[in-house]
Computed example of a mutant assay.
Amino acid sequence: MGTRRTSLPGVGTQYDFITEEGRHISVVVHHDGRRFLGFYASEDPDACQLEVPLSSDEATALAHLIDPAPIDAVRTDGIDLVTEHIPVGARSPYSGRLLGETAARTRTGASIVAVLRRTGAHPSPGPDFRLTTGDTLVAVGTREGVDALADIIAGG
């Protein structure tokens, strides 16, 4: 099982997911909140067999079916805010480094509000918090800011 995240300039972000059985599922998240599910042929991972467009409400309903407690987007004063989990992978340039070295808020406008680690959650981590491979950052910001932060953490 593996996932890959790809920034689509001017469009949004594509998330590719490979199941344990080798099935390829793709989710494209547009900047305006629209989502598309893509299902690919196992014998040809580039051949999309079916694409299903989802409105934001439909995507939320589907997420609730898969995970009864997903983190939803928050809308405040006409500004769309999203909350997203961002993994710190083995290839991240920030694994083993201090959170402050990411300069996340300055570079993207997104805030890291917690770090989830196997040993527990660390809410409101300070700049001296050391990130490790396997951590999951809980980030809040605009879609563009959170996407930019995910690219930075991934080393993109």
Rank of each mutant, 00 (worst) to 15 (best):
R91I: 06
V11D: 09
E84C: 02
I18W: 10
P87E: 13
R75I: 03
I71N: 09
L50D: 00
I86S: 14
S7Q: 09
A69R: 04
Q49I: 06
S55N: 03
G33E: 03
D46Y: 05
I25P: 02
A61P: 00
V88N: 12
I71F: 06
R34A: 02
E84T: 08
A47L: 05
E20W: 13
A41K: 04
R75T: 09
D57A: 15
T13R: 05
D80A: 04
Y40W: 09
R4C: 11
I71K: 08
E43S: 11
I86A: 14
S56T: 00
G12Q: 08
L54H: 01
A90N: 15
G33L: 03
F17C: 06
R35I: 00
V27D: 13
G22M: 06
V88R: 15
H30P: 02
E84P: 08
L65C: 12
L8N: 10
D80L: 12
A59I: 05
S42P: 05
E51A: 03
L81E: 11
H64M: 08
R4L: 07
G78L: 11
S92Q: 10
I71C: 01
T6L: 02
G10Y: 11
H24F: 00
A69T: 00
S56N: 09
T76Y: 15
P70N: 11
D16M: 11
I79C: 13
E20A: 05
D77F: 01
T19K: 05
V11K: 04
G22V: 14
E58V: 06
R23Q: 10
E20D: 14
R23W: 02
V11C: 06
T60P: 02
V88T: 11
I66N: 01
Y94C: 08
S95I: 07
D67H: 06
A90G: 11
T83R: 12
F36W: 01
S55M: 08
E21K: 15
V29T: 10
S56W: 00
G78K: 12
H31F: 07
G38Y: 01
D72R: 04
F17I: 06
P9H: 07
L50K: 13
V74C: 09
R4T: 15
A47S: 11
G33A: 10
I79S: 15
E84D: 10
T83K: 15
T6P: 08
G89H: 05
E51W: 00
G33S: 11
G12K: 04
F17A: 06
F39D: 06
F36C: 10
A90Y: 13
L54Y: 04
D16L: 09
I18Y: 14
S26R: 03
G78Q: 11
F36S: 10
